[in-house]
Design a protein around this nucleic acid. Structure first.
Lengths: 148, 148
DNA sequence: GACGATGTTAACGTAAGCGTTAAGTTCGAG
DNA sequence: CTCGAACTTAACGCTTACGTTAACATCGTC
């Protein structure tokens, strides 16, 4: 059902990384390919591609190292696992446990993202007021120029 | 007038870095101490501390490497130089040139910061909708619970 | 079934950003 | 003037996140 027909080179290109990077992520336990060819070559799914892009986002936008990212994606994989258990009709206490953990991880991450967002906003505000100052300075040396 | 009485260890502590980091920044031409003691020890000013913090912000918030940061802080140092020339009564075309360059650098940086801000916002939106889904999932398995 | 493109593992290499150590010098309080 | 804390340069070390190369296997198209 869930197809995994993509080769490593294709996923690498789509994600904007190299094949080395994908193998390295696997080494770290960050991203296991969804399947393998008869001969043993890695085969990836579209979900895998999404995961790679997510890892990159966490790296570039949040500046996390791969160990921290592993914690996050592991938690998310657990939720995926829950969905399967859920569909298979797992016992309720177990479901609760996993969802609560997912919520906790998600909330932590959200808090960090929000904090970062705030800091960047402040940084941008600084830049904006600097920009205004620069332009005032420019106008003050060029007082008689009308709009063009 | 402009005092530079701080020792490297004090600045390092204030900025949350080590002395090694400050010396490394100097190696890279990122931050020259404002002065020296008679014996040759580095002496920093409060402005220097501000610069260090700025470098750290560009590193942590924007993910720039130190080479890119060097370009930015160099441009800002040029503006500082302008102020001195300005006060000394430099010729107008030169002032224009430098201010325009400062504006260009500032605008480029602002564009990058805004882009990053947008991406992080999108990322946060994703997390928020995920959070909502998780909580719905939790409520669906716990239908009869009132507020506690 | 040939064969070029693409894949495999294993190993060493590399750049950035400092950490650490060594061996000596200077600072400043008493 | 002394003496411990803080500084100096110089050099090698270390971690992360891959890049690169070698030597070989497999894929899939003709």
């Amino acid at each position: 059902m869930n197809g995994f027909h993509y080769r490593i080179g294709q996923i690498a290109e789509q994600a904007g990384v190299t094949t080395r990077t994908l193998r390295y992520y696997q080494e770290l336990g960050l991203l296991e390919p969804s399947g393998h060819s008869p001969g043993g070559a890695r085969r990836y799914s579209e979900q895998d591609l999404t995961k790679v892009k997510r890892i990159r986002e966490l790296q570039e936008l949040m500046g996390f190292d791969l160990q921290a990212i592993r914690t996050i994606v592991t938690a998310e994989a657990r939720l995926q696992q829950l969905r399967e258990e859920y569909l298979a009709g797992a016992d309720v206490p177990r479901r609760h446990e996993i969802v609560r953990e997912a919520i906790r991880i998600n909330d932590d991450l959200r808090a960090e993202v929000r904090a970062r967002l705030g800091r960047i906003r402040g940084f941008l505000d600084d830049l904006n007021s600097k920009a205004a100052r620069y332009r005032r300075l420019l106008r003050s040396t060029e007082p008689a120029a009308a709009g063009r």
